[in-house]
């Protein structure tokens, strides 16, 4: 899959990669780490499935929506 895979979580509106949002959603994260660091890469929060996932992940629902376009 290419970096611009339309089905990837990063293209979904339910997926939030903003560091400030991640830090406020995961209490304690900024006490001994940070959402602004390299290790997080492009991970984000999926508000639909309540998961913390990589931006390259593919969600069944999102992939299905794209396949119907």
């Amino acid at each position: 899959m290419s970096e611009a895979d339309p089905r990837a979580c990063r293209t979904c509106r339910h997926f939030d990669q903003r560091a400030a949002v991640i830090e406020s959603s995961l209490p304690g994260l900024h006490a001994l780490s940070s959402a602004y660091g390299s290790v997080r890469a492009g991970d984000g929060l999926c508000s639909l499935r309540e998961r913390y996932a990589a931006d390259s992940s593919v969600c069944d629902l999102h992939a299905e929506a794209w396949s119907q376009l």
Partner: peptide
């Protein structure tokens, strides 16, 4: 591996539940 940074890196890589990542962070801290 590396504490809270390790927890969020793996939580994201495997697609863990948000609440589980939060608990892992609290335990590490």
């Amino acid at each position: 591996v590396c504490g809270v940074s390790g927890a969020i890196a793996i939580g994201g890589a495997v697609g863990a539940k948000r609440q589980d990542v939060s608990v892992a962070i609290s335990l590490v801290v």
